[in-house]
Design a protein around this nucleic acid. Structure first.
Length: 551
RNA sequence: UGGGGCGUGGCCAAGUGGUUAAGGCAUCGGGUUUUGAUCCCGACACUCGGAGGUUCGAAUCCUCCCGCCCCAGCCA
């Protein structure tokens, strides 16, 4: 389906209407992560939605860090997020924004609210505040500090700001309605005391604005027209609007919510991903098994694959679980079209030719359908490696069932000769050590001669001219489709075999100095890229080839 | 339970009262192929959470019922 005949989603419909009615003249969206962790595939959807909408309607999308809670945030996360958004290929409008750049303005607005008798300094502690808030079925009751005169609240807020008040003893609250059926409207906290340094403002502040008191105003300051977030914020929308209505803000943004992405066999919660890192279930945020953008990058997934996948997802209000197979489809689709082909033998089995003692150099295309990707040279010698799984002594195996090398029979070496296996050499333990074979003359780039029927085509590498390498094979990180909702903790469902390290693999020579940003298909195996961290030649398996072979 | 949101094939989904309920993923057949890949062709919802009702006509409108998700942080 092309972009033009793809049905428009409900947000595009709203924007179209707003543009038509004149409510909006230029669309401005924003991607507003809190720098408290690394971005994951769920964020990718949000990024694609927000940047995509801006692009769609010739508007702009801001990148804004919602850094209102210094306790969890750091510059490391800011930098990682910037890198990820850039890597995905998106260009934000203007400079990078930070909520912390607006702290002075927020403080002024807080004072305005107090002066309007719409906010007050409350001295209830956390536990008391919870009691006063009521429950889902019972209304709350007013704080005893609710009627405090504005002048007193102003003075107290000043002291809070100056660092003269202990953490947890006072908050600034909006004066809305303790009986509201929407709990978010029961006098929400605007400012809380945190006497802690902020990664950007240092020790300037001792109080920090809460999400609700910041987000809508950030949008208004930046002229965001359509503030798009995920469903769990729907209950915050009335509060978002309350601040916009009661403050002298420069513009009037509107919030819309869509369903966040859930992927089975995976987790899209920053908190839980952080736990995987902190408890060393994985090596780091960019461990190739992680569903983080940086993990996917290191794994070899392309930005295009991620974007195509996200674009295939609906922007709607349903909260479903997308099948990992759908993501894998887009990963393979992009890699199949763009990855150069190469050969690498994962579990080497030595084959010695008894009727061949030369050295030749064959040329193989780098992609069967794409001449523009060029070719590479394959040295061929009297000894080669094939994969252990590509040889069998069982001559009763049918040609349909086993399209590989069988003792006494023929197989085609990809891009090279047809060969015949003649003899099996065993070591002292009876294990197969080597195959003695013979080359069928004049079969390179030519059809098989009469009477020679190769069972199939297998990959190989010269034993004399190849590269030693290590290959990391990955399996899903969890062995439950819904690690979050399964019995026990999600960490109970971590797949203990999610990483398999293969040493002593043999790669073709052309792979000697490749960059980690280049992606390859190791023919008949899968897609791989060089690991970006390892100093030696290490390849990470992005994903295996689709396998329709029914054994 | 108060409020908010959502229920269309195994999964994601289009559909905004009127042709045979799009499409993608998955699955299953078949063809091509020097990758058991790719590619190509074909199959795959008498039915839209359930029950009533309105209508010549309902996935779309109404009523009731059932189920799932979110909100009771001085997190975002």
């Amino acid at each position: 389906m092309t972009d033009s005949d793809k049905p428009i989603n409900f947000i595009q419909q709203i924007i179209t209407d707003d543009l038509a009615s004149g409510k909006t003249s230029k669309v401005v969206t924003r991607f507003p992560p809190e720098p408290n962790g690394y971005l994951h595939i769920g964020h990718a959807k949000s990024i694609c939605v927000n940047f995509g909408l801006a692009e769609n309607f010739s508007g702009g999308c801001n990148l804004r860090f919602d850094d209102t809670n210094p306790e969890k945030e750091s510059d490391e996360f800011v930098q990682a997020i910037i890198e990820d958004v850039q890597w995905l290929g998106f260009k934000w409008h203007g400079d990078i924004r930070y909520a912390s750049d607006y702290f002075d303005q927020f403080y002024q607005w807080a004072c305005d609210l107090i002066d309007q008798d719409k906010a007050y300094v409350c001295e209830l502690n956390a536990e008391q505040m919870r009691e006063y808030r009521g429950t889902l079925t019972e209304v709350g009751k007013d704080s005893p500090y609710r009627a405090r005169p504005a002048t007193e609240s102003r003075a107290l807020l000043e002291q809070m700001k100056a660092g003269e008040i202990a953490e947890g003893t006072m908050t600034l609250r909006a004066k809305i309605d303790m009986a509201s059926p929407n709990i978010n409207m029961r006098d929400p906290v605007l400012y809380r005391i945190k006497r802690i340094a902020h990664h950007r403002t240092g020790n300037k502040w001792n109080i920090y604005p809460a999400y609700d008191f910041a987000h809508g105003q950030e949008d208004a300051i930046e002229g965001v027209t359509h503030s798009i977030c995920t469903l769990e914020f729907a209950a915050n929308r009335p509060l978002y609007n309350w601040f916009i209505d009661n403050l002298d803000v420069p513009s009037t943004p509107s919030q819309y919510e869509f369903g966040r992405l859930n992927l089975n066999y995976s987790i899209t919660s920053k908190r839980k991903l952080k736990q995987l890192v902190d408890e060393a279930h994985v090596d780091a945020w960019d461990d190739p098994r992680m569903p983080t953008i940086s993990g996917l990058r290191r794994r070899g997934v392309s930005p295009a694959a991620i974007r195509n996948f996200c674009d295939s997802l609906a922007v709607a209000k349903t909260d479903g679980v997308v099948d990992m197979a759908q993501f894998e489809h887009f990963i393979r689709d992009d890699l199949n079209n763009n990855a150069r082909r190469a050969m690498c033998v994962l579990k080497p089995l030595l084959v010695t030719f008894t009727n061949y003692d030369q050295s030749e150099l064959f040329t193989a295309s780098s992609h069967p359908q794409r001449d523009d990707l060029g070719s590479r040279e394959l040295p061929f010698d009297r000894q080669i490696y094939i994969d252990q799984s590509d040889f069998s002594e069982d001559t009763s195996l049918s040609r349909k069932k086993f399209k590989r090398l069988v003792l006494g029979e023929y197989v085609r070496l990809r891009g090279a000769y047809i060969i015949r296996a003649d003899e099996v050499i065993r070591d002292n333990d009876g294990e197969i050590q080597e195959i003695r074979a013979s080359v069928v003359e004049n079969t390179v780039g030519a059809d098989a001669p009469e009477g020679v029927r190769p069972r199939g085509v297998i990959h190989w590498v010269s034993a004399l001219n190849s590269l030693d390498c290590t290959v990391n094979l990955y399996d899903r990180l969890f062995n439950q489709p819904l690690p979050d909702s399964a019995e026990g903790s999600f960490t109970d469902h971590i797949n203990p075999d999610s990483l398999k390290v293969l040493e002593g693999c043999k790669a073709e020579l052309s792979l000697a100095n490749v960059e980690s940003t280049e992606r390859y298909q190791f023919e008949r195996e899968g897609y791989f890229c060089r690991d970006s961290e390892a100093e030696t030649l290490v390849f990470n398996c992005t994903i295996g080839l689709r396998d329709n072979w029914k054994a």
